[in-house]
């Protein structure tokens, strides 16, 4: 696939733009590049567009809604065929979405939804944060197969929706398994450094040998926690099972090294399903569902994690 994309990319680079005039032109207003995942999403979106021969006009809003609105207006003025938006906030979109609707340009929301009338956008492609947590919980329940297990949890930033939803999902996933118990839960702010610090305190407060599993709301915290577990003289992945969410390259590497057990992918490929839906809609007017849920794929040591790592490491994570 990588080879194919590269070839295609060079083909596009070589071919004059006019030769593709018949193809679709799509505007993409991205939030910015505040995280590795966001950077990967941008990369994958560009790859997906290239793969389909779409002329992608990219605009980086640098975390500002007014920049996004400006970008969307400029896309409308250029007469693009469709617009992809990863909205930075939920409110304040009605006016510009109406302008797009008036110009009959379909808008697809990526990654996040907005508080606007459903008729103003074609569809929203997002992951289901609760579902991700649930997959993690169910994996652990399966893995333990009835054995008693004291779990510690590294939460995301307190009050953020991923932290709330991934916690709720995990609790759903382990519901009904009385052998599983969350004994400590504290925020690690989604960062490696805090993940390590908080895990250190868990290890001391509970005693490393009394902890059977760690659930982290993202991989970065899990990677930090792995180091804390190693420094405490325990074997991460064996003495303490570790499951986290996001499937960033370093998590695959850790799974490959046997230091982590599972990760659930928050795919950066929001554009793939979005472009599929757009192409179908523009070709024959097929109305997609208002919400396209991306797959929350589970990766464990059963997968070829090194191969996935090598594929993902250049996406910009």
């Amino acid at each position: 696939m990588t080879l194919k994309t590269t070839l295609l990319a060079s083909a596009i680079a070589l071919a004059p733009v006019a030769a593709l005039a018949a193809d679709l032109t799509i505007g993409f207003s991205q939030i910015g590049s505040e995280s590795g995942w966001r950077a990967a999403e941008t990369t994958v979106t560009k790859q997906e567009a290239e793969k389909r021969g779409i002329d992608l006009k990219f605009a980086d809003a640098q975390q500002k809604q007014e920049n996004q609105i400006k970008a969307i207006r400029s896309f409308i003025a250029q007469g693009v065929d469709a617009i992809l938006v990863a909205p930075v906030v939920a409110t304040g979109w009605d006016e510009v979405l109406e302008e797009a609707a008036d110009a009959e340009i379909p808008v697809v929301l990526l990654d996040r939804t907005v508080d606007a009338d459903e008729s103003l956008y074609l569809t929203a492609v997002t992951s289901d944060l609760v579902h991700e947590g649930k997959v993690a919980g169910e994996w652990l329940a399966n893995e333990m197969a009835g054995e008693d297990c004291r779990i510690v949890e590294l939460q995301g930033t307190t009050g953020s929706s991923p932290a709330i939803d991934r916690k709720a999902g995990f609790e759903q996933g382990i519901a009904g398994h009385d052998n599983l118990e969350i004994v400590r839960s504290q925020t690690g702010d989604f960062t490696r450094a805090q993940g390590k610090v908080v895990m250190e305190s868990f290890l001391k407060a509970e005693g490393g040998e009394n902890i059977c599993a760690l659930y982290a709301h993202n991989d970065d915290m899990a990677v930090g926690a792995i180091q804390a577990i190693k420094e405490a003289g325990l074997k991460p992945g064996e003495d303490i099972k570790i499951v986290a969410i996001d499937a960033v390259p370093d998590a695959h590497k850790a799974i490959a090294a046997g230091e982590m057990n599972a990760t659930i992918e928050l795919t950066p490929n929001m554009a793939g399903p979005a472009l599929d839906a757009l192409e179908a809609y523009l070709a024959n007017g097929t109305e997609p569902a208002k919400w396209i849920q991306t797959e929350s794929k589970l990766f464990t040591s059963a997968d070829d994690n090194m191969a996935i790592f090598n594929m993902k490491k250049d996406l910009g994570y």
């Binding site: 490696r192 450094a193 390590k196 990677v223 930090g224 180091q227």
Partner: peptide, 12 residues
């Protein structure tokens, strides 16, 4: 701080 987590996290 970078050495502690074996990585430089420019954001955090």
């Amino acid at each position: 701080v970078a050495a502690d987590i074996k990585g430089a996290d420019a954001n955090n």
